[in-house]
Design a protein around this nucleic acid. Structure first.
Lengths: 235, 235
DNA sequence: CGCAACCTTGAAGCGGGTCAATATTCGTGG
DNA sequence: CCACGAATATTGACCCGCTTCAAGGTTGCG
């Protein structure tokens, strides 16, 4: 990971005010810590922006970090036997990935950026140390485990039932919701295919079809927009 | 749940010797406790055998128990909007279900016995109390969360890819492995269908076909047996 | 015995897979 | 700036597996 000062403590970073509402601080893992503990914690936390395709960690790795998503989206890719790999779930703002590292286990999947992401990297040693003094932190971690379960199960129920059309609609709506109706990344057809469980060709056909039906269209900046109302009718 | 004395402490129960290797005691949640703590814990733990179709708990419930599987298998059924329900994962010997209760959240699914099951029911208050004195217990719980993730993800990779034939073969092999090649329950076609993600008719066709091909057959006691070798070739 | 629940089997249709050809985009170097 | 090539996207044709709808068959229980 590129060396960047944790910008939550960097006066020069223009985004600093957001630190007050940082996912790390207010909503997720460290919600239960005192201000003093937070200050101490931030020193060990690395932060940075990553472009699509950057790999936060690889399946089998044991680097010993957990990652908190502040913006963007990562896919969790499971490499099965025989070169086949499936996207088992997606993670968004406020979610923690790589939790298995807290149990001293190797990463079960690779985490790859799907949409430009702002991510904090936290050493597991720090989490362990804090958890000793804050039993409540353990429950925050378990809560994050439940979030992962939610993600993978919604993948089953939403993205794996119904026609390909319905599944693609769900996926687009999900991206739309997570970006406040602003920017849906124009994913590779291969990624779309991996997520909704069809072949690349079918994903392409579906996207082309959606575009013809004006359900999605390109903004000047290469981002997608969608007609959420219309998409909802397809689900 | 029927009132039964926890038979781990019942001298008259013929299965008592097994208590030494009880899933509760040796492998799962309470592996980290001292003997004295175990004794105290067992007083609050209820245990019993349950037949297929018995519902351990219902989606949305808040009874405040976690359940440890000692034998058998339960399906986790998620009721989605509009009467449709999907089987999101299976749990077997040694696994803990209903973990969300530890976070004071309602059960996210219904847990229904699929194969005659020996189950221990543990109040969350007991777990919380023990966790205060044993920080390590929290990690055991997180580990169980990972087991659930494993279960649901293996459902995605194993039981949701390939032809229906391959998926059914995987399912049978899974039951076979978990019962030491002894007893596969003769599941309802509807359950099979829900697990491998096909219609009831297709499940029936597949099972009938497997039977004709001598891949599975009935034992006198209404249990199934399978030719594991042959099934493995279909995956 | 008779009903209800479950299983089996058939026929027709379609969604998506597969294989293959062409188009588009984009980075790179001349 | 354009030409070229690699990666990605689009589209077509054909086929197979599963769904759907429908009709028996089987099991088990009151």
């Amino acid at each position: 990971m590129p060396k960047t000062k944790p910008y939550c403590t960097d006066e020069n970073w223009h985004g600093r005010p957001d630190c007050q509402h940082c996912a790390v601080r207010s909503s997720v893992l460290f919600a239960v810590l005192t201000d003093a503990e937070i200050e101490e914690a931030l020193l060990a936390v690395q932060n940075g922006w990553f472009e699509p395709d950057f790999e936060l960690f690889a399946q089998g790795g044991r680097e010993g970090y957990v990652y908190v998503m502040r913006t963007g989206c990562v896919k969790m890719v499971h490499a099965g036997g025989g070169g086949v790999s499936r996207i088992v779930r997606l993670h968004w703002r406020g979610e923690v990935v790589g939790l298995e590292a807290l149990l001293n286990e190797p990463y079960r999947h690779s985490a790859v950026v799907l949409q430009k992401a702002d991510v904090c990297r936290i050493p597991v040693s720090l989490v362990h140390a804090l958890a000793l003094r804050n039993p409540e932190l353990s429950y925050q971690i378990m809560r994050q485990g439940q979030v992962s379960l939610d993600a993978v199960e919604s993948g089953i129920t939403d993205l794996n039932s119904g026609t390909g059309e319905a599944r693609l609609a769900q996926l687009l709506l999900k991206f739309n919701a997570h970006s406040g109706g602003q920017c849906i990344p124009d994913l590779l057809r291969e990624d779309i295919a991996g997520i909704i469980g069809v072949t690349t060709e079918t994903a392409s056909r579906l996207m082309a079809d959606f575009r013809r039906r004006k359900l999605v269209w390109n903004e000047e900046n290469r981002q997608l927009r969608c007609d959420a109302e219309a998409l909802r009718k397809l689900v």
